[in-house]
Design a protein around this nucleic acid. Structure first.
Length: 236
DNA sequence: AATAATTTCAACCGCACAGGA
DNA sequence: CTCCTGTGCGGTTGAAATTAT
């Protein structure tokens, strides 16, 4: 292993990561955890800055990352969420498990920027007593996907396929990763909601989350319609 | 086949913020 | 309260890959 004097004496490396650097970083993150990046960078002997290590880990080495192409559903979600939130890439990334803010940002800049605003899709967000759903509907209504946010969340596979169990052909089954960010976030949200509901009624145009059915829609062309309450999506 | 132009995306940078001393 | 350090976020860059001529 490289001693401290060697590390400090040499300039920090920049540019593309080598395979052995990836392996070294992965080993150290598994050993020490993904915090204190500066210290980790020094201790590991990598001639990289802490933030460079962090970036590499978050955008490339982290487990459960998807490295494949962005799916059609993901693209639609990116478009809609970008229209809704703007360049809040990290926030958008939280809605797409396995995708990084950097990846989404790059994808949007290279593929989607010219497409906005879209006209051929429709999202429908439904809240029904502990169950949240994000419907995705094609313009011709022929294909409808549903991402369910079930309170019992026995499986993240519930995130898709309630109306179309055959959605695997679109790669949606990849959402069903155990301990995925999706599931973690949903668990957090659900427990948060449960505790809030003990003392707070969440009143919106559609009455409250305790109403039997709160049907909310949001489309690019219809901004005055009822919108999903931001707390549904704001997982921070 | 060679070269130029364009596209893609990994990586870097600056800034803002939070938390601890 | 101030300063310092670490982290997160969004914008930008530039090398590599791809496509066009």
């Amino acid at each position: 292993m490289t001693c401290q004097a060697d590390i400090e004496g040499e300039k920090l490396r920049k540019g593309p990561w080598l395979e052995e650097e990836d392996e070294q970083l992965t080993a150290y993150v598994n050993l020490k955890g993904n915090r204190r990046w500066d210290a980790l960078a020094k201790e590991s002997g990598l001639r990289r800055s802490g933030r460079s290590c962090r970036m590499r880990w978050l955008n490339y080495l982290r487990p459960n990352l998807k490295h494949g192409h962005i799916t059609v559903e993901e693209e639609k979600i990116i478009l809609h969420l970008h229209e809704r939130w703007g360049n809040k890439w990290s926030k958008i990334a939280q809605m797409l498990p396995g995708r990084t803010d950097n990846e989404i940002k790059n994808y949007w800049r290279t593929h989607l920027k010219k497409k906005e605003p879209i006209q051929d899709g429709n999202f429908q967000c439904t809240s029904n007593k502990g169950q949240q759903s994000l419907f995705f509907q094609e313009g011709d209504m022929s294909a409808e996907k549903q991402y369910n946010f079930n309170q019992d969340h026995d499986s993240v596979s519930n995130l898709c396929g309630a109306k179309d169990p055959c959605s695997d052909d679109l790669g949606l089954s990849e959402f069903a990763l155990t301990n995925s960010p999706y599931e973690t976030r949903l668990s957090d949200w659900i427990s948060e909601l449960s505790s809030e509901q003990s003392g707070i009624n969440y009143n919106q145009d559609c009455n409250s989350v305790e109403s039997d059915l709160c049907h909310l829609t949001w489309t690019p062309d219809d901004s005055n319609r009822r919108e999903c309450p931001s707390f549904l999506w704001d997982m921070n």
